[in-house]
Amino acid sequence: MTRRNPALAKRKPFGVRIYKNFRFAALALVVLCLLAPLAWLVASSLKTNVDIYDASKTFFFVPTLENYANVLTRNNYFVFIFNSFWVASASTVLSLILGVPAAYAMSRFTMHRSALVVLMARVIPGISLLVPWYYVFSNMKMVGGFGVLILSHMFVALPLIVYIMMSYFDSMPLELEESAQVDGLTPIGAFQRITLPLSVGGMATAGILSFIFSWNNFMFALVLSGSKTKTLPVAIFDFVSYASIDWGGLMAAATVVTIPIMIIALFTQKYIVSGMTAGATKG
């Protein structure tokens, strides 16, 4: 009787090894494509304009912080950072306050027509509303203030939050609320004490996505903001003039816009994943 070689027995089939190698190579290629532009952005922000145009200094150059000094001190970008943070936070919080109860009502009372209206508001291009918005808000003397920016960002954030939370509430068992009402709670009390605490993951997901949209929004702020309410994406345009472009300052400013969002996504990824997968694991 022949004995099998343990080393050969542990070897996986050739097709399995090929598939694993292909999957690893494809994953490495995707990661490289995603990280290469970011690495180029950060590297360019540490170069002078002369070094950026010099192909021989693509990888080997003397780094400088002059671009960041120009962005953060001379151009007063801390004000623009505060403006972006304030508009993004206010629009997200207000959208959550209005959107979560609306999503709960649409989910529990099967308000399909209202959900369709919310979906239509989600897919309407924002640029088609800028002209009427500007006309209305200019007549109300609101253009250039924080209020008009917050309201315009809520137009996209609110439908996004409602749509995410509707699917989240649909996945939650109705028996939990019915049991709470049998114990003496009102429908509103059951929502506040039972449903709302269980939906923290979904609210975190919706709030983070809303904040990221508002932070990165350029179009609304370009038309509706003023010199004192300018946000970071609009402020980046200060480095682009008719005759030339300050590429070093532009890259440093873009890095300042990108890094906070990356940090937020890094520390809140578990909430995003739990909120995104809630519909598949509950119910």
Rank of each mutant, 00 (worst) to 15 (best):
residue 145 G to D: 12
residue 25 A to M: 06
residue 96 L to G: 03
residue 246 D to K: 11
residue 247 W to Q: 14
residue 21 N to Q: 10
residue 172 M to V: 15
residue 262 M to I: 10
residue 246 D to L: 11
residue 84 S to Y: 08
residue 112 H to M: 01
residue 186 T to D: 01
residue 151 L to Y: 09
residue 103 A to E: 06
residue 150 I to P: 00
residue 107 S to N: 06
residue 180 A to V: 12
residue 60 F to W: 06
residue 17 R to Y: 13
residue 146 F to R: 15
residue 179 S to K: 00
residue 172 M to Y: 08
residue 278 A to Y: 07
residue 277 T to M: 12
residue 112 H to S: 02
residue 68 Y to S: 03
residue 72 L to V: 06
residue 38 L to S: 10
residue 9 A to E: 11
residue 122 R to W: 12
residue 137 F to P: 02
residue 266 L to P: 15
residue 95 S to K: 10
residue 255 T to S: 09
residue 76 N to S: 13
residue 247 W to H: 13
residue 66 E to Q: 02
residue 91 S to D: 06
residue 37 P to M: 14
residue 276 M to D: 00
residue 46 L to Q: 08
residue 276 M to R: 01
residue 187 P to F: 14
residue 190 A to S: 13
residue 119 L to Q: 15
residue 145 G to P: 04
residue 58 T to Y: 01
residue 29 L to F: 11
residue 153 H to N: 07
residue 213 F to Q: 10
residue 117 V to W: 08
residue 265 A to H: 01
residue 110 T to P: 00
residue 92 T to Y: 05
residue 174 L to G: 15
residue 24 F to G: 00
residue 160 L to I: 08
residue 26 A to S: 03
residue 170 D to W: 04
residue 48 T to F: 07
residue 251 M to C: 15
residue 59 F to Y: 02
residue 169 F to V: 14
residue 275 G to D: 11
residue 58 T to S: 11
residue 184 G to H: 00
residue 80 F to I: 07
residue 163 Y to H: 04
residue 87 V to A: 01
residue 145 G to A: 06
residue 105 A to Q: 15
residue 62 V to I: 07
residue 3 R to Y: 13
residue 241 S to H: 14
residue 114 S to Y: 12
residue 78 F to W: 14
residue 12 K to Q: 14
residue 133 W to G: 00
residue 130 L to A: 04
residue 95 S to T: 12
residue 220 F to G: 08
residue 200 V to Y: 09
residue 273 V to N: 02
residue 20 K to T: 12
residue 39 A to G: 03
residue 98 L to K: 06
residue 113 R to I: 00
residue 26 A to C: 02
residue 37 P to Q: 14
residue 61 F to G: 10
residue 281 T to P: 02
residue 39 A to R: 03
residue 273 V to F: 05
residue 13 P to I: 15
residue 97 I to W: 12
residue 183 D to Q: 12
residue 189 G to C: 08
residue 22 F to C: 01
residue 100 V to F: 03
residue 228 K to C: 03
residue 90 A to T: 15
residue 135 Y to F: 05
residue 65 L to H: 05
residue 185 L to R: 10
residue 98 L to V: 05
residue 62 V to H: 03
residue 88 A to T: 04
residue 84 S to I: 03
residue 251 M to N: 13
residue 263 I to S: 07
residue 42 V to L: 09
residue 209 L to F: 10
residue 263 I to T: 00
residue 220 F to M: 11
residue 39 A to L: 02
residue 235 A to Q: 11
residue 223 V to T: 13
residue 230 K to P: 00
residue 250 L to F: 09
residue 48 T to S: 14
residue 25 A to I: 01
residue 213 F to D: 05
residue 281 T to I: 12
residue 11 R to Y: 13
residue 60 F to D: 05
residue 91 S to G: 00
residue 124 I to F: 15
residue 101 P to T: 04
residue 172 M to K: 06
residue 8 L to H: 09
residue 205 T to A: 11
residue 277 T to Y: 06
residue 19 Y to D: 05
residue 83 N to S: 15
residue 110 T to M: 09
residue 277 T to S: 13
residue 171 S to K: 11
